[in-house]
Amino acid sequence: MIAIIKYWRGPLFWLALLLLAVFCMGQFEFLFRQLTPDAAEVIYHRESFAQLLLNHLLVVAVAACLAIIIGVLAGVVVTRSWGRDFLPLVSQVASIGQTFPPVAVLALSVPLLGFGDLPTIFALMLYGLLPVLRNTLAGLQGVAGSTLEAARGIGMSPLQVLLQVELALASPVILAGIRTSVTITIATAAIGSTIGASTLGNPVIAGLVNGNTAYVLQGAVLIGLLAVCVDSTFERIQHGLALRYGG
């Protein structure tokens, strides 16, 4: 038990800070007052931070799960012998897509899906897809040809080769892609507030519109803590994976 806590102490520390910020923001009113002495209110009250955090997490979770499923599947399909014709196309889209700013993706999804959570999820999914796809491709293509030949030569079925050898060997690289994707998605989801999604971006947008720096800071602190918390969790998972594979 103690060993488990010790192993996870990084993420646990950031989680504690995040919960402190969510539930005890009011206690720091005197600090935020220094920042904006003229404002009527210095703590964001329109929605509770807990509610915003939950909705933020929900939007991110749905978008990230879709991105991971689609990204890994697409990566697997285009590296099979029967899907290899699409490999150049898909890997080009994956690299070019990454140069596209997330705000632009968000803006483009509004005409398609209107305002609210749905277009935000769609845009986040599209944007989060790319690191997953790119790393899945890199991971699968990084498996040595001799390893694959041996796997086939000893009598594994194509599915066994994929699951037991290819994906297993590519998993550290794929996981790194998922980590990037989820972290980007958490940060980018805040921009979803501009198109009507309810996220931790709400205080930031409200603060920018009303010239209330305290609001902006509260939103930013929460988003930052959430991102660091999730990112440090992934770091531990990757570390554990590396230990298991004798790396």
Binding site: T147, E149, A150, A151, I154
Partner: peptide, 15 residues
């Protein structure tokens, strides 16, 4: 293939 042992130069061991 499962009835035939197969050994190759680069060993092809699963890392």
């Amino acid at each position: 293939r499962r009835r035939m042992g197969y050994a190759i130069q680069s060993t092809g061991l699963f890392p």
